[in-house]
Design a protein around this nucleic acid. Structure first.
Length: 170
DNA sequence: GCCAACGTTGGC
DNA sequence: GCCAACGTTGGC
């Protein structure tokens, strides 16, 4: 691939982004214009803080399908635009409308992501539970509901291995 | 559909 | 600031 590296691998961070495929699936991202979309509608402060403060252009993300059959990591995406105000917070017709959001100080942000490759078959929840090197992974913890989670680089390597992908390609 | 986990809300 | 009630998430 002749694409420029966004930043040195040492500075790049890894993320996990949850979505319910019934509302938006990785396949939808693959079919989107330029295979990109706004990752909007996040309405949790901790998740917001990760997006706003830590997510950078060039970071990589695992796309995770929750409430799905099967649940699991179904694709790899890249952050192609850092956080900016999430337009849906101002749209009364949008399900994520926030009547308290003020334009002069918007509380919610969105990033733009681009699909890289699908993970097929997906890396299932069970496969990750069976992998001792992922024992600390946030998404596997009981009751963990954060929709935007940081992923350690070691965990990233293991997940890509389980996916049959070469981490060096990213 | 159940229910445990956990974030948010609001009365005090 | 406490905390009970409530709503949402998400695996099962």
């Amino acid at each position: 691939m002749g694409e420029k590296r966004a930043q040195p691998a040492a500075k790049r961070r890894y993320w996990l982004l949850k979505t319910e495929p019934s509302s938006f699936a990785f396949e939808d991202l693959l079919r989107a214009p330029k295979r990109r979309t706004q990752w909007d509608g996040v309405r949790n402060y901790q998740a917001r803080n990760f997006m706003r403060d830590d997510m950078q252009f060039g970071d990589l993300a695992l796309i995770y399908h929750s409430s799905a059959d099967p649940t699991g990591i179904t694709g790899i995406a890249r952050i192609v635009r850092a956080a900016r105000p999430d337009a849906t917070q101002f749209d009364p017709k949008d399900e994520h409308f926030d009547p308290k959001a003020r334009r002069e100080d918007p509380p919610w942000v969105a990033v733009e992501i681009e699909a890289l490759v699908p993970v097929e078959p997906c890396v299932s929840l069970q496969a990750r539970k069976d992998e001792p090197r992922l024992a600390q992974m946030l998404v596997l913890r009981r009751g963990q509901r954060l929709s935007v989670q940081p992923v350690e680089s070691g965990e990233w390597q293991v997940v890509l291995e389980l996916a049959g992908l070469d981490p060096g390609n990213f």
